[in-house]
Simulated assay, not measured.
Amino acid sequence: MHSMHIPERRHPWQVIKPYLNVFDGPLMLILFLLLSVSSMAMYSAGYDHGSRFDDHLRNIMISFVVMWMAALMPPQMLMRLAVPLYTIGVGLLIAVAMFGIVKKGARRWIDVGVVIQPSELLKIAVPLMLAWFFQKREGTLRWQDFAGAAILLVIPVALIAKQPDLGTSLLVLASGFYVIFLAGLSWKVLLGLFLTGMASLPIVWSVLHDYQRQRVLTLIDPTTDPLGKGFHIIQSMIAIGSGGVSGKGWFKGTQAHLEFIPERTTDFLFAVYSEEFGLIGNLALLFIYLLLIGRGLLIAANAPTVFTRLLAGALTMILFTYAFVNMGMVSGILPVVGVPLPFMSYGGTAFVTLGLGVGMLMSIQRHRKLVQT
C-alpha cells in the first residue's frame, strides 16, 4: 500500500520573505528616517489644509508599492523597457504640443482617459534610454556616440521647455546629462559647453517668457516686487531666518500658520520645517539626504554592468538635484522653478517618480548580490 505524499506546509513568512528581500536594508532605513521627518513637517503644514496630510500618507503608500514593483524587476527587464518608455514619452509630449490641455497659460497635460503630465515620465525614461544607449556601445565610444546621446536628450528637453515648464525641463536635462557625464564625457568638452552656455545667455534671455525673466530679476532683488513676484522668496527667507538655531518648535511656526508662506505643503515645505526646527533640524535633514545619496552612489560604484552603473549613478544624482534646487530656491539663492523636495513635499506624481527611481536602485543592488551568490 503506497503512502500518500502530503506536501509540507510552508510557514507564511517563508512565502512572503522572497518578495520582501527585494528591499535594500540601508536604503529602507534612510527612507524611514526621511519619511518620519516628512510626516512631522506635513502634519504641521497641512493639518488645517483639508485632507492634505491624509493624502500625503496615501502618496507615501503608493510610492512604496511602485518602489516594490520596480525592485522586483531585474535590470534586464529595465533595459527592455528603455526604448518603449522613451518613445511613448516623446510621443505623448508631441501630442501635448498639438492638442494638450492648457492650465494657467501652460500646455502640460493631456487626456488619455485620465489627465496625465507626460513630462514626469521623462525624468525616468531619459536616463533609462541613455544608459541603454551607452550599454549598447560599451568599449567603442566615439564622439559621434556622445553627439547621438545629446540629440536623444535635447528632443524631450526642448518639447518640455516649450510647454513652458522650465523646472521639469531642467530636471530632465540634468538626469540625461549625468548619464552622459558618467559615460566618460571629456572635461574639455564640459568646459567648452560651459563657455558656450555663458556666451549664449543673451540669446536665452531673449527667448524666455516674461514670467521666467521676472523670476530671474526677482531672485536678484526680491524687494523690487515685495507683494507680487518677490513675495514667495521674501516670506520664505523670513521663515528660515526666524527659526534660528533650534527653531520655534513643532506647530509654532508663525509664518506658516498665519498664511504668509504660499505653497507651504508643496514647493515651500522646507521653509515651514526650517522655521519650526531651525538650523539643527536643517543639519539633521541634510545628513539624511547625504546618507541617501551616499548609499545610491555606493550601489552605482558596485553595479556589475555599464547600464546599471550609469542608471544608478544618474538616479542618485537626480535625488541630489531635486534636494539642492528645492532648498536653493526656498533659501533665495536659486530661481523659483517648482521643484519638490524629495520624499518631503506633497505631490502624488513626484512621489511615484521618486519611488520608481529608488526601486530601480534596489533592483540594481539586489541583482548584484544575486550575481555574486
Rank of each mutant, 00 (worst) to 15 (best):
I30H: 12
I30L: 14
I30M: 10
I30E: 12
L31S: 07
L31N: 07
L31T: 10
L31V: 09
L31C: 11
F32D: 00
F32Y: 11
L33Q: 12
L33N: 07
L33K: 09
L33I: 04
L34D: 11
L34N: 11
L34K: 05
L34T: 09
L34V: 08
L35Y: 13
L35D: 00
L35H: 06
L35Q: 15
S36I: 05
S36W: 07
S36C: 11
S36L: 15
S36E: 00
S36V: 05
V37L: 15
V37D: 03
V37A: 15
V37W: 07
S38Y: 06
S39A: 15
S39L: 15
M40A: 15
M40C: 14
A41I: 08
A41F: 05
M42W: 04
Y43N: 13
Y43S: 07
Y43I: 01
S44H: 07
A45D: 03
A45E: 03
A45R: 11
G46V: 12
G46C: 06
G46L: 05
G46T: 13
G46Q: 10
G46D: 04
Y47C: 02
Y47I: 04
Y47L: 08
D48V: 03
D48W: 10
H49P: 01
H49Y: 08
H49D: 02
G50E: 07
G50F: 02
G50K: 07
G50C: 08
S51L: 08
S51D: 14
R52C: 01
R52E: 09
F53K: 05
F53V: 09
F53M: 09
F53Q: 00
D54Q: 13
D54C: 01
D55P: 00
H56M: 03
L57A: 04
L57P: 00
L57G: 02
L57C: 08
R58Q: 06
R58T: 12
N59F: 11
N59V: 02
N59I: 00
N59H: 14
I60H: 01
I60D: 00
I60R: 03
I60K: 03
I60V: 14
I60N: 05
I60Y: 01
M61T: 08
I62S: 09
S63K: 06
F64G: 06
F64P: 01
